[in-house]
Amino acid sequence: MIRGLYTAASGMMAQVVRQETIGNNLANSDTVGFKQDLTILQTGRENDVVRIPQERLQRQEIIGSMDLGVLVSLQHTSFAQGPLQETGQALDLAITGNGFFTVETPEGMRYTRNGAFNLDAERFLVTAEGDRVLGVLGPVQLPEGEVQIAPEGQILVNGQLIDTLRLVEFADPGQLQKTGSGYWSTEQAELDFNGQVQQGYLEGANVQPAEEMARMVAVLRLYETNQRVLQAHDQLTGKIVNEIGI
């Protein structure tokens, strides 16, 4: 009886986690380079169901198994391409295809898809956080002049090759860990970049509002359903206590 109560409660808690993820996706639907997350659930631990022994010392007979509620198994990030938005700014870059820009932060190397770069006072290329963007030769410092960035990442100022953006890919981007501010971290080996850099564009978030709304409706109703199950268990317990015992 009590077991069912906790099964229903775990169902409610799992829906809360899902709703938090949906809420975070929707909150970041206007964040450049954001990739949406999907909460994956799986059945809880499997337990053997044992027949209650009729006589003492009789061997316990297993009559089947039952899952105990639900667990959050992983947070899957979809790396599907986001829509490109034209800005016309020379330092706005978008990646089409797989791959990441690399950024030097106080916490170490980070990877990002947000190419809304600026210059700092020393003319280093920086992210909105003020972290320096890395080229093959180190942090990218731009002399004055017209900046052109080739699809493979070569940086040309007034036609002179300055550096090449340090662009990387990973074998399993699903294992990258989000660290906030549009950054990812990983211990994985960096692979060669096969995507393309588009100058004058930004990559919007790949959040699909309609999909998230549909998920949100499902979350709300599943939450209610689990609440009803919990209530039913409560009512059953109430009957045992108040009616059978008398």
Binding site: T21, N24, D37, L74, Q75, Q177, G180
Partner: peptide
């Protein structure tokens, strides 16, 4: 057993 920790974002 999750290979990477399951995390949830905190907004924008």
């Amino acid at each position: 057993a999750a290979e990477k920790p399951v995390t949830a974002g905190t907004g924008t």
